[in-house]
Amino acid sequence: MRPEIAEAYDTRATVSGTTFDDVMAEYRRRSDTAVAHLAGVEGIVYDRPSAQRLDIWGLGDDARPVFFVVHGGYWRMLSRQDTAFMADVLAARGVATVAIDYGLAPATALPEIVRQVRSALTWIYRNGGEHRLDTDRIIVGGSSAGAHLAATTMVPGWQESAGIPQSAVRGGLLLSGLYDLRPLVHAPANEWLYLTNESARAVSPALGTAPSTPTVIALAEREASGFVQQSTDLHQRWSDAADSRLLTVPGRNHFDVFLDLAEPTSELSRALFSLIDSTARTDDAVPTQTVPVTGAHS
Score class of each variant (00 low, 15 high):
M1I: 05
P3F: 05
I5V: 15
I5F: 01
T11M: 13
G17Q: 11
D22S: 15
V23M: 09
A25R: 14
A25P: 00
R29I: 04
T33C: 01
V35R: 07
V35S: 03
V35Y: 03
A36R: 15
A36H: 14
A39V: 00
A39S: 13
V41A: 12
P49H: 13
Q52H: 00
Q52W: 00
R53G: 00
L54I: 06
D55E: 13
I56A: 04
W57H: 11
D61Y: 01
D61E: 14
D62N: 09
D62G: 08
A63W: 09
R64L: 14
P65N: 08
P65W: 01
V66M: 08
F67W: 10
F68R: 00
F68I: 01
G72W: 02
G73Q: 02
G73H: 02
T83D: 15
F85V: 09
M86D: 00
D88A: 06
V89Q: 12
V89E: 10
L90R: 04
L90W: 03
A99T: 14
D101A: 02
D101G: 01
A105I: 11
P111A: 11
E112R: 13
R115G: 05
V117N: 02
R126P: 10
R126L: 15
G128T: 05
G129W: 11
E130V: 08
L133Y: 06
L133I: 05
D134T: 11
R137W: 04
I138G: 06
I139F: 09
I139G: 04
V140H: 01
G142Y: 07
S143H: 10
L149Y: 03
P165H: 03
P165Q: 03
Q166N: 09
A168Q: 04
G172E: 02
G172M: 02
L173A: 03
L174F: 07
S176F: 01
G177C: 08
Y179S: 08
Y179R: 10
P183D: 08
E191C: 02
E191Q: 14
L195M: 07
T196G: 10
T196A: 10
R201W: 09
A202S: 15
S204M: 12
P205S: 07
A206T: 07
A206E: 12
P211E: 00
T213K: 05
I217P: 04
I217Y: 01
L219S: 08
E221N: 11
E221M: 11
E221L: 10
R222W: 08
R222V: 15
E223R: 11
A224N: 07
G226A: 08
Q230S: 10
S231F: 01
T232G: 12
L234F: 13
Q236K: 12
S239E: 13
S239H: 13
S239T: 15
D240T: 13
A241N: 10
A242R: 01
S244M: 07
R245Q: 06
R245F: 02
L246A: 09
L247R: 02
P250L: 13
N253P: 05
V257C: 04
L261E: 06
P264K: 03
P264D: 12
L272M: 13
L272W: 05
S274V: 06
D277T: 15
S278D: 15
T279A: 08
A280P: 05
A285M: 10
V286C: 06
T288W: 00
V291G: 01
G295T: 09
G295Q: 11
H297L: 12
